[in-house]
Amino acid sequence: MKPILDVDNLTRIHGPGCPACLDVTGPAHDTNLCRHCGSVVAVADASLRLHKGEVLGIMGESGSGKSSLVKMLYFDDKPTSGRATFHDEGQAHELFSLNDAQQLRLRDTRMGMVYQNPSLGLNFDISAGGNIAERLLMSDELSYRVIREKATALLARTEVPPARMDELPRNFSGGMQQRVQIARALSTGAPLLLLDEVTTGLDLSVQARILDLIMELQEVTGVSMLVVTHDLGVVRHLTTRTIVMKHGRIIESGLTDQILEDPQAAYTQQLVSSAL
């Protein structure tokens, strides 16, 4: 198996930071707030490897740093220290030493992101088709006919009625907005998708259909995914391997089945047993 993403000791500290920050925070101290300088340690020394075609789950409670981690990988935020290497088309891109234009190029054409809140991933002032057109235009597709055809096909694939593709996404239901976001993320054939709490806030039947859609697309396209969630059901359905985070640290990682059936860390045990 070939790696597509290697993350080494990624750390993000919000605040001034001090030498003691990493030593006085974490699950052992039951806080991510440094008592010396008041900084918040969002992510500390996170390392992981994602293989080609693999779906990796990142699980943890609110504030555990899972979204922070993914945001850095999508260049929405800058890490305090650490490295991440994205292996794409025979090249190894050192994500955080690229310049602004190179980062945007990767983000716009080789990565896809689906946010929990569709207003972050979509422009509500342009039509659903326009949102997909924007990604295609970023990857230098300048034929109106081709853009139109691709957008129609993508929306059909994510079960958005083509008749509504010229409507503003603000008029859509939450589930449909999420499907437009997924279509947009898929539009450039990116080999890496980052999904941040994609089903949170949707009702159960819509959740199930979104998960089915993601699984189906993953099987057809073979895209690698990082799936951030606090929902055990999502982890069980989508992922083969899972890491568990708490207070910015990765406290457990392994096969999803193994973690759900035989959790080792105390927090994971609590998490699994508290599932309804």
Partner: peptide, 22 residues
């Protein structure tokens, strides 16, 4: 200014796309 620097003009074309659609 950053968008100009890296010739990041996709969103101008999106305006044209929306015009063509409408």
């Amino acid at each position: 200014r950053r968008m100009h620097g890296r010739a990041d003009y996709a969103r101008l074309w999106v305006k044209l796309y929306e015009d063509m659609v409408a």
